[in-house]
């Protein structure tokens, strides 16, 4: 099973040179730590920043510089600042090519639920609905099963949806999976020492296995 850091590390391998990328809160934020230094990429923060710099030194903390997770951050020499309408214009306009976000559930058709548990938790969708409606590539980072052991990869989401037919790839603590155009989770890779049978037993939605499934490789 992968740790959160390893999930982030595996997702970082999906990043391509020249991409503008939005990282959600949680594991997706960790992806930034593993993007190879030779790639020229720009991280977008939907509260109004392109070019997210590292966390500041204590002496340089600025309350007027935060990311979408409300963490204090720094600017880079080539950063750009803008307002929230501009921020979502670049998201909806398809200028942000890659969105990496967490999920509570993903369906075998690429539907995603991550903003509400009726009667229990109401936090709101933030920018997630705009992001999943528009990005060209959407990768979900999540645990394969919930804390009580229920599969989060389902035939159909039970929770209120964030977006439909939008997720392209899922990286969990057990596997890398792609959404098949006709529906289903194509098992692409398995975590080290995790068997295909274990993944099968923990995937409630349709799992598609095409030949030998390789183990994930980490550099």
């Amino acid at each position: 099973m992968l740790t959160k850091e390893q999930i982030a590390k595996r997702i970082a391998k999906e990043v391509e040179n020249g991409q503008y990328i939005n990282l959600g809160i949680g594991i997706p934020t960790l992806v930034a730590n593993y993007i190879p230094a030779h790639l020229e990429i720009v991280l977008q923060s939907e509260n109004g920043l392109l070019g997210i710099g590292p966390f500041p030194k204590e002496s340089a903390v600025d309350p007027d510089l935060i990311n979408a997770g409300k963490q204090t951050i720094t600017l880079l020499p080539d950063s750009a600042l803008f307002d929230s309408a501009q921020s979502f214009a670049m998201i909806r306009g398809g200028h942000v090519q890659l969105t990496i976000l967490g999920a509570m559930e993903v369906s075998e058709h690429g539907d995603i639920a991550n903003w509400k548990i009726p009667g229990k938790m109401v936090k709101g969708m933030g920018g997630a609905m705009d992001l999943v409606a528009s990005a060209k590539n959407i990768i979900v980072a999540m645990q394969h099963c919930s804390k009580d052991g229920q599969s989060k990869l389902l035939p159909k989401c039970a929770l209120p949806l964030t977006g439909i037919r939008c997720v392209k790839k899922i990286v969990t603590d057990l596997a890398v999976l792609e959404i098949a155009p006709e529906g289903g989770f194509i098992l692409k890779e398995r975590a080290p020492n995790v068997s295909v049978d274990e993944i099968k037993s923990k995937t409630a939605g349709k799992l598609i296995i095409l030949g030998e499934v390789p183990e994930m490789q980490f550099d």
């Binding site: 307002d83 309408a85 979502f88 214009a89 909806r92 969708m125 705009d130």
Partner: peptide, 15 residues
């Protein structure tokens, strides 16, 4: 009462 709106929709509705 609460009306939750996608952030980009909220921004654009105001704009």
């Amino acid at each position: 009462e609460v009306e939750l709106i996608p952030q980009g929709t909220l921004a654009e509705r105001i704009r």
